[in-house]
Simulated assay, not measured.
Amino acid sequence: MAGCRICKQEMLTAQGCAIGTVHINGKVYPRIKAGDARDFNPSMEEGERCGDCGAMKGFFHHFGCDIERCPVCGMQMISCDCEDVYYEGIGEE
């Protein structure tokens, strides 16, 4: 079982990540939800889970998901070139 580093939920049983924003270059942006029109998989069906992180359609991808798209540049969130990316919850125990 794998836990999300930012929301601390079990990724394969939670509906999605509980953290809905990401800080990028000093500004706060809403994260793109699984199955959203801007998501890498916009054709998800209701009740379907992300094949990587387990987030259900309409919920936020979990931290480190290969499918999450950056809300600023549109590339993969885990490997985009945006600077100063910060999530609430990282490093907080």
Results as ranks from 00 to 15, higher is better:
Asp39Thr: 05
Glu92Arg: 14
Cys73Asn: 02
Ala37Gln: 08
Asp39Gly: 13
Lys27Ala: 11
Lys57His: 04
Leu12Thr: 12
Met1Pro: 14
Asn25Gly: 15
Arg31Thr: 13
Asp81Met: 03
Gly47Thr: 06
Pro30Cys: 03
Gly54Thr: 06
Asp84Leu: 09
Gly89Asn: 02
Cys82Pro: 07
His61Asp: 05
Gln15Ile: 01
Asp52Leu: 07
Arg69Lys: 09
Lys8Val: 13
Val72Phe: 06
Met11Phe: 11
Arg31Ile: 07
Ala37Cys: 04
Ile90Gln: 13
Arg5Thr: 09
His62Ala: 04
Tyr87Leu: 12
Arg38Asn: 09
His61Pro: 00
Tyr87Asn: 14
Cys82Thr: 10
Arg31Cys: 11
Met77Pro: 00
Val85Phe: 00
Glu68Cys: 09
Glu68Ser: 10
Glu10Asn: 12
Ile67Phe: 07
Gly89Phe: 04
Pro71Ala: 02
Pro42Thr: 11
Ile24His: 14
Phe63Gln: 13
Gly91Arg: 05
Arg31Ala: 10
Cys53Asp: 09
Ala18Met: 12
Ile32Ser: 00
Ala2Tyr: 03
Pro42Phe: 05
Gly3Val: 15
Met77Phe: 10
Val85Asp: 07
Gly16Met: 03
Ile19Pro: 00
Ile24Lys: 02
Lys57Arg: 15
His61Met: 01
Val22Leu: 00
Gly64Pro: 13
Met56Tyr: 06
Glu68Tyr: 00
Ile32His: 05
Gly16Pro: 11
Cys80Asp: 02
Asp81Thr: 04
Glu46Arg: 15
Arg38Ala: 14
Cys73Lys: 01
His61Tyr: 05
Cys53Leu: 11
Cys53Met: 03
Asp39Tyr: 02
Lys8Arg: 14
Glu48Cys: 05
Leu12Val: 08
Met56Cys: 03
Val22Asn: 10
Cys65Tyr: 00
Glu48Ile: 05
Gly16Asp: 03
Gly89Val: 08
Phe63Ser: 07
Met11Val: 07
His62Gln: 07
Val85Gln: 15
Cys50Trp: 00
Ile90Val: 13
Asn25Gln: 13
Thr13Asp: 12
Glu83Phe: 05
Cys82Met: 02
Ser79Lys: 07
Gly26Glu: 08
Asp66Ser: 15
Met44Thr: 13
Val28Glu: 15
Cys73Tyr: 01
Glu88Gln: 11
Lys27Ile: 00
Cys4Gly: 01
Pro42Val: 04
Met75His: 09
Ile32Tyr: 02
Ala2His: 06
